[in-house]
Structure formats: C-alpha cells, structure tokens
C-alpha cells in the first residue's frame, strides 16, 4: 500500500476519533497508542529510526492538525535524538518513559482546564454548549457534585455520539438540561447567559479551529451579547497560521430519499478570537495571543 494511502487511512481514523471524543482525548489515546506500539515493535536497529521518524511525520501532519499532539511529538523527537544509537531495548525503554511523562503532563493540563471551567460556572447559570467534549462534561460534574452549584445546561443537538454522551452525563448526575436542535438557539438567547466551547487549536493569525457548527453558534451568541468562553490547553497554541492547520475538505455524494446531494464539507470550523470574550487555559484566563 502506498504511504499516502496508508496515511489517509490513519488520518481518517484520527478524524473519526476526534469527532466523537474531542481533541484532548484523542491526544491522550494517541500517546497511549504510541507507547503500546513502541513496546510491541519488532524490527532491526537499522530500521528503528526510520520507522519512528515516519510515524512522527504522519502524526505532525494529521488532517486537521492536532497541535497538542504535534508539539508533544516534536519534543519527543528532540529528546530521542541522543538515543538513536543506544540499542533497541534501551531506546524502547527511554521512549516509553518519556512518552509516559508527556502523557502525564498533558493529562494534568486537561484536568486543570476542567477545574478552570468548573470555577467559571456560577449558581443560576444557563450555559450553552457547542460540540462539547469530555472535559466540559467533567467540568459540569465537578461543579455540580463537588462544588455544589445549581445550574442548567442548554445542549445543542449536533454530532449524535457527543450529544448522547453529554445527555447521559447530565442525566446520570442529576444536572438540569434542555436539549434543542441547533437551529432553535434563537429561542433561548434571552435566557442563556454563557456559551462554553473548546477548540482543536489556536493559530498565529488569531483563529480558533473548532468543531463544526461552532462558528455559527459563536456568531449568534456574540451578536446577542452572550459571553463566549473558550477553554483550551496551551499546548494547542499553534506556531503557524490557519492555512497550516490542515482542515480537511471533503466532497461527497449524500443520498437521501432518492435524491443525490453533491456536498462539500469541512472537518472543522474556525472562529475569530475577537468573538471570544474569555480565553481560559490551564493557568487561568489570559489575554488573546
């Protein structure tokens, strides 16, 4: 199989994972998968460097770019330069240890972002969520069960699996919520008082790459003066502009009730940071870059 074909299969898999689990969880699973793969690898010492660099290149160029993963891979590669010639077992041992260290660091960052999110939930809030991911769910649980705050969540029905997971989480923890189709948001703009979103990355030209559907929600909330909170780990701040974020474009035919629609779709939206009122990382609220 050609390399580009193989890469496309992997990018497709990673994209599917991101759609359902979010970028942070995808980064964590990718690191764990890398650790397992290194441990299982059975090759010659001559092949080792090539195989590692090949995978690293693939992971740095996913579509869309997972900036947090790319950054962690870059530091991993830098660290492992001194160990290429140390022998297979020594390399594997060092690589595993370093990746586990990076994994712990990222998990700690994600946990901190969750805590920062929970702190920004006030009693009586009616919070809109768009394309919510795992740490947003965890933040709601933390705020409700540990911090004993009473609030309501407006869940926009978007991707089936994410919506299902958010609804299950809220129901299981007794958190009040309203589920609406995204197109009915205008009916709640006078009642909801905050919008919480996450992002895949932030580019150098002040754009946040977000889940699809988020740009419209942010736009309408901004127009109606609903404060927009963006929660993101600093590892997701990219060193490159939007056009280098590899947002994936797809043209495909959708068949519904015997009608064929020739559809063009993009894997992600992007939101101008000028529309974001509060940019919150694991270290707290920060000024726009």
């Amino acid at each position: 199989m050609k390399t580009t074909e193989k890469n496309q299969i992997l990018y497709h898999l990673i994209r599917d994972y991101m759609y359902t689990m979010g970028t942070s969880r995808t980064t964590i699973v990718a690191l764990k998968s890398y650790i397992d793969a290194i441990q299982r690898l059975n090759c010659t010492e001559q092949e080792l460097k090539g195989l590692v660099l090949e995978l690293n290149e693939v992971l740095k160029k996913t579509e869309p770019k997972i900036v947090s993963l790319a950054h962690l891979i870059e530091v991993f590669e830098e660290e492992m330069k001194q160990h290429w010639d140390s022998g297979m077992e020594a390399f594997k041992s060092r690589a595993t240890a370093y990746l586990e260290q990076q994994l712990k660091r990222f998990e700690a960052d994600t946990k901190s972002v969750t805590a920062q999110c929970a702190e920004r939930i006030e009693p009586g809030d009616f919070i809109i969520t768009s394309s919510p991911t795992e740490y947003l769910s965890k933040a709601f649980i933390l705020a409700h069960t540990a911090l004993k705050k009473q609030f309501k969540v407006l869940v926009l029905k978007q991707d089936y699996l994410r919506t299902r997971d958010m609804v299950n989480t809220l129901e299981n923890h007794g958190i009040e919520y309203v589920l609406i189709p995204q197109y009915n948001l205008s009916h709640f703009l006078g009642k909801a008082n905050k919008l919480f979103i996450g992002a895949v990355s932030i580019s150098t030209d002040q754009k946040a790459v977000t889940g699809f559907g988020t740009a419209n929600v942010v736009s309408i909330c901004h127009t109606h003066n609903v404060p927009v909170y963006l929660f993101i780990e600093t590892l997701k701040f990219s060193h490159t502009p939007l056009q280098d974020q590899h947002i994936y474009m797809e043209k495909k035919d959708i068949i519904e009730s015997d009608t064929i629609f020739h559809m063009t779709s993009f894997s992600n939206d992007f939101v101008d940071l000028n529309l974001i009122n509060h940019l919150v990382t694991e270290k707290g609220e920060r000024m726009r870059p």
């Binding site: 699973v29 998968s33 059975n42 995978l55």
Partner: peptide
C-alpha cells in the same frame, strides 16, 4: 510487528 505506523493505528482502532 515491524511496522510502527500500523501498530499505532491498530491501538487507536481498537480503542475506537
């Protein structure tokens, strides 16, 4: 076992 990219893909795939 001698293809790191495939090994990586498999782990992610099984998780998915």
């Amino acid at each position: 076992d001698n293809d790191l990219t495939k090994l990586f893909s498999v782990q992610m795939l099984i998780e998915k």
